[in-house]
Design a binder for these strands. Structure first.
Lengths: 231, 231
DNA sequence: AGGGTTTTCGCCTACTGGTCGAAAACGTGG
DNA sequence: CCACGTTTTCGACCAGTAGGCGAAAACCCT
């Protein structure tokens, strides 16, 4: 029984969320698009394996985040001998445009091309996970360049979440968690003018929220999120 | 390369969180305790496999929740030929005490016995996942009987989270999400008297929160969690 | 200088969860 | 049968959070 690792590597480009795909040259499913990855070697664990295999497609230093998604193990998920897949979610900041082999391209996750095997469902799972984690972790910084404006960050959040996000709330929420650190610099305004936006960076002194907030916390501890009115 | 499925099946008993373990009879790691599970067959996916294998240990109808935890794939995680493991988290309500084979026992997760292979780390991962999900999902109901008092639910939460939880807050939070439905009945008071507790059941009409609350929500929608004062 | 554009900041409101205390409902012992 | 302890339940108060404006700031272009 074979084991392969696959990664849905996502990035934000403009107003859309994109996934890195490559076009299969050989059967089965020739000319369909599939996720990067490959066989797990006997001397590596799944995370080492996916990082090694992604290194052939992108500069791994540009990978700002990698995490396990789930195991996909339907017996007939690929034709031929049984192959179980460990799927990963990978993120790349929006400012880098890695050189990539000719057969790989970024595709908008909203209109995926004809995909090979069960890879489309893996992409959807990755998109859902990113959306969920954007709300309660700091994973959003993995989508942004080292220095960014609030507007850029808001656009990234909007693209990944699929709905508009208020820049006011975004800045306030992140600031309260001590995650935003002003660099002092400003970004030049757009072609139509406007006030120059202040630049921020991710503050390592902030609260790294890997797990969701606890709604019920131990007595005598500070509390997490708050509710507001919709009005 | 082999593939096995393992499950950390948790339940609350009294004030402690317990995990179901069985004692290995054969080498390697004879007499150490390990998680239930076994080899993945070629005609089943991982979830079917773990349910089939758990059926030999517990009545699967008593399993109130099963979800993938993670893949454990260190090349040397087991001696001999390479075996990759897909780990699951399973939950059993506290009111059932399934018949089980003589070699299996419930152990408190706080003081685990000498465990086989990497199974101790899997148990810890399961405990952390349960603790996280208790806060932002309805998974807590999987630990409780069909009808329960708020006090019992609070004790379960406390056991699983490791800190005391306020019954007032628990009831308020769950009620506001329309998750608690009074059955009308009351539970008899304890030996030392006291007001009889009202019985509740899980309301299917409530908000099933599988994913965490979004801290940043779409404009014009209700809001999720609120913060309070620690005072 | 004036108008358009974008960002930034402050104010208000709604709602949440923690804390505390009182009241309700029971058993028990004098 | 009434006072007491026990446990549950409910209400009130408070601090802190996020959503929703709207005004002010800072820039470009004409």
């Amino acid at each position: 029984m074979g084991h392969e690792v696959l990664a849905a590597v996502l990035r934000v480009r403009g107003a859309s969320l994109q996934v890195m795909l490559w076009e299969r040259a050989r059967e089965p499913h020739a000319h369909r698009w599939s996720l990067p990855g490959g066989e797990l070697r006997v001397d590596e664990d799944v995370e080492s394996s996916i990082r090694r295999q992604l290194a052939e497609k992108v500069d791994v230093r540009q990978l700002s985040h990698v995490e396990q998604l789930a195991v996909f193990s339907a017996p007939d998920r690929v034709p031929g001998p049984r192959v179980v897949a460990t799927a990963f979610l990978g993120l790349v900041p929006s400012d880098v445009d890695p050189e990539r082999p000719a057969d790989t391209e970024w595709h908008c996750v909203e209109k995926l091309p004809l995909m090979a095997f069960d890879h489309a469902s893996i992409v959807h799972r990755a998109r859902n996970r990113l959306g969920s984690k954007l709300s309660y972790t700091n994973i959003g910084f993995a989508l942004a360049p080292p220095e960014f404006t609030i507007s850029l960050l808001r656009d990234h959040y909007s693209a990944a979440l699929g709905y508009r996000v208020s820049a006011t709330n975004l800045q306030r929420v992140l600031s309260r968690r001590l995650l935003l650190e002003p660099t002092g610099g400003t970004a030049p305004p757009g072609p139509s003018g406007g006030r120059p936006a202040a630049l921020f960076r991710f503050s390592a002194k902030g609260i790294l929220v890997t797990d969701p907030f606890a709604v019920l916390r131990p007595p005598g501890s500070g509390r997490p999120a708050g509710g507001g009115g919709t009005t």
